[in-house]
Design a protein around this nucleic acid. Sequence first.
RNA 1: GCGCCCAUAGCCCAGUUGGAUAGAGCGUUGGACUACGAAUCCAAAGGUCGCAGGUUCGAAUCCUGCUGGGCGCACCA
Length: 552
Amino acid sequence: MKAKVETLLKDTISQLMKNGDIPEVEINDDLIETPANKSFGDFATNIAMVIASKAKRKPRDVAQIVVNALSHQDMFDKVDIAGPGFINLSIKPISWVNVLKDIHREKEKFGISTYGAGKKVQVEFVSANPTGPLHIGHGRGAAVGDILARILAATGFDVQKEYYINDVGNQMKTLGRSVYLRYMELLGKDIEFPKEGYQGDYIKDLASELKQIHGEKLLALSQDEAIEIAKDFAGNKILDGIKEDLDIFGVRFDNWFSEETLFKQGKVEDTFAKLKEKGLLYEHEGALWFKSTEFGDEKDRVVKKQDGLLTYFASDIAYHRDKIDRGFERVIDIWGADHHGYVPRITAVLEAFGADKDSFHALLIQLVSLVRGGVPVSMSTRSGEFVTLREILDEVGKDVTRYFFLMRRADSQLEFDIDLAKKRSEENPVFYIQYAHARICSILKKAAEAGITPEIKDVDLALLTTGDDLELIKMLAAYPNMLIACAKALEPHRISFYLMELASSFHRFYNKNKVITDNKNLTSARVILIDAARQVIANALSLMGIEAPEVM
RNA sequence: GCGCCCAUAGCCCAGUUGGAUAGAGCGUUGGACUACGAAUCCAAAGGUCGCAGGUUCGAAUCCUGCUGGGCGCACCA
């Protein structure tokens, strides 16, 4: 509906400008807003004030011209000028009910749009090192990334979800050494376990599996060879576990990108050569530097150290160059907020390889703290004392976990209250929403049993324009545009707030109006209405990867 | 010391990218089932949008400076 009004307004304005009725000025895209106060109508525009201030005319005069042009449009009930020059637009109730036909026709596709115009977008998220199981912080990144990607796909982008596997470097070596030492320990050797080694119990489990497979054979090898074997074994095993956890969480990636392949395919060396050609790579004090200051970073960054080893950033450069080479027009990385310092240098990489600065977005996810029984659960990754995503999933389930991670904006810290998450009650918003869905299904079932299964073409939808029913319809009509707003702002949390409002809107309607009554026509109309509400709730939940149960 | 993020009702958070009288939920108080699911609804109370300036027709939103909290500032990954 909003899109319709916006198009109409734009056409009207440009026609008026062509005729010379109002001065020609540049207009930006967002013309229509929803006023905070319902008495101001369904939509409002400040276009007259914008034009007036640019052309030095009186806002209300410009507004009057626009109003005259709009007022004989069929869809409007009322078009008037308010305050300093707002134009308030009230839509005829009968225009609203048409959205029910759209929903009925499009069903699970209702809400899908072509806003993204098929633009190729990559969303990279989680990307945890395969050195240990996913913890709850990774879970938030997984939920946000997955749901954002789904929203982008629903709004017409060509989206790829990717997981970057950091399977090279010191941390992997440390993993190999940790498992190797535990393995030696199992064979009765005296070992000294280093502080920087991985302490968790899962390391001992991996060591014992390693022993089952290889017996004592690794003793015959050199330590380096044995560690290499332990590293590969543990890395693969942990990665399998990560994939399994994500699968349970409902997160499927389109591509798993191994850092190691960058080296094997010579992409890192090739990238260095390209940078050298561009004059963006130089030697200084025996190290090799990337000239990121060229693109606004505060200092240049080392890619090859004095000792000849590459930094982690070196593969990051090659990796992000590869993203551009693969044809992505937008690159979205989802990181923990503690990595915010890396934004300028990665932006620099994208720019160095010819991408537009605005084509790269780093979405920073703030940390998650866990609360149980009202007290914070301490987590220290080092000591191996952390709550894994898997434990949360086993305890509270996929649906609630996914929803809870989307209950806050990504850039605000999140407190995950396990007791609240497990509560099947009013305090838990997930059940509030699912309850609305189940309630509707229950009514529809009862209606069907009574032989009430109306065809939308036979129903008088004009009966639904009185009060709470119209409010509910307006909520349903807002769904497609809400998704576009999520996509525009890269803010997937908005969908969870929308769902709360929609569920609330339905519950209010339900409590005031009986669906199944002796009035046959009204009953039919209301059955159509709540079926549409059911459809939109189901669509939104499905985008969030949450079940929409018919009974609870 | 430099940089980034946050600060909104007793609590936890929204706030449509600068709009009109700042909103939900929880909690508190009072009400609604001999009606399709009360896991619901209705009503009331609750605010110097951290503080102080500035920009303009208009600021929770943008700019500057403070205060308080989180996080970064490696030839670590």
